[in-house]
């Protein structure tokens, strides 16, 4: 059992290294100049890795605290909050002289943070995970109902800007933005890794957690804070990116054949980064680049359906 796990770790690490090399070097054919490498390829590869870690780790935590194999930041309404923020910034057409990209990022971050705060504030009122999940889904619905209203009154230029954000991309990130994402991912990851034993316990239900002397509300709160910091920052710069948060934890749990978070969370982080880099590579192999959200959906949906049919998840 132990040696099998070691082999998987080596495999996964090798795959990740290969993906990084591919992403940085060979994708456009021929060796890139140092400038391209420094300012385009590397930030892009690092962004994809960070996004993979952040979204998959958030997904893994949410699936455990909500006892729901399909929970992730996307479904809980945190991504939706970010989307609303971005929509307000671009579609209302406020021109304040700040570069558009930065305005979207700031506004999307605030949106994600706001929805996370709302979820955290009400989470104490709910007795169980199911009620909280319904609340999150309702928040997503409200946001999705609001965006078309904003779109209706917007100019075509700002519509274009919003669309390019909402289709998701790992490109055009500066080193400053990468540093911001890295900070968020470090904070979120440390919080999650300190919570592994508690996450193991909450899987067995709130009553079981109380029996072990843990506080279910606090475990859920910690996981939500970790997830929203990471998701908010990543979504702000890369746009809403789904599926990786759902599938990475399942693939990791399957490969390492354990539900214990001490192994599953690091495995999930590696899997998530590989998926994001692979999706990014795929989306720019053709003549015209395909939006990352589409690539993710085309690759992600068959995997989720396959896993659903093959074995019960969680």
């Amino acid at each position: 059992m132990k040696s099998r796990k070691r082999i998987i770790w080596i495999w996964v690490a090798g795959l990740l290294t290969l993906a990084i090399l591919l992403a940085a070097d060979l994708s456009a054919g021929g060796l890139p100049s140092v400038d391209i490498l420094k300012h385009l390829r590397l930030p892009r590869a690092v962004t994809a890795i960070l996004a993979g870690i952040a979204l998959s780790l958030s997904g893994a935590q949410m699936q455990s605290i909500f006892h729901n194999p399909l929970a992730d930041p996307y479904i809980m309404g945190i991504s939706a909050g970010a989307a609303l923020g971005a929509a307000v910034a671009t579609l209302t057409g406020t021109n304040n002289g700040i570069p558009a990209g930065l305005t979207i990022a700031a506004s999307a971050s605030s949106g994600a943070l706001l929805s996370a705060i709302i979820i955290l504030a009400v989470s104490k009122k709910f007795k169980n995970a199911g009620e909280l999940l319904i609340f999150g889904i309702m928040m997503s619905f409200i946001v999705n109902a609001t965006i078309p209203i904003l779109q209706a009154g917007a100019e075509s230029e700002s519509l274009k800007l919003y669309y390019s954000w909402s289709s998701g991309s790992f490109s055009n990130t500066t080193w400053l933005q990468t540093a911001m994402m890295l900070t968020a991912v470090i904070i979120g990851t440390i919080t999650a890794l300190f919570n592994t034993k508690e996450l193991d316990i909450i899987i067995f239900g709130d009553d079981f957690a109380s029996m072990a002397g843990a506080d279910p509300g606090r475990i859920r709160m910690t996981a939500l804070i970790s997830s929203s910091i990471m998701t908010g920052t990543i979504t702000a710069f890369c746009g809403p990116i789904g599926f990786v948060g759902i599938i990475a934890p399942h693939i990791a749990g399957y490969a390492f054949s354990t539900a214990s978070h001490r192994t599953k969370l690091p495995g999930t982080m590696l899997t998530g980064s590989i998926i994001c880099i692979a999706a990014d590579l795929l989306s720019r192999t053709g003549e015209t680049p395909i939006p990352i959200a589409s690539t993710m959906a085309f690759v992600g949906i068959p995997v989720v359906v396959y896993m659903l049919l093959k074995r019960p998840i969680i």
């Binding site: 899987i203 239900g205 009553d207 749990g253 354990t258 539900a259 599953k264």
Partner: peptide
């Protein structure tokens, strides 16, 4: 408690 779920993977 009653009815603890039997979570696979432990």
């Amino acid at each position: 408690p009653a009815r603890i779920p039997k979570v696979a993977g432990f």
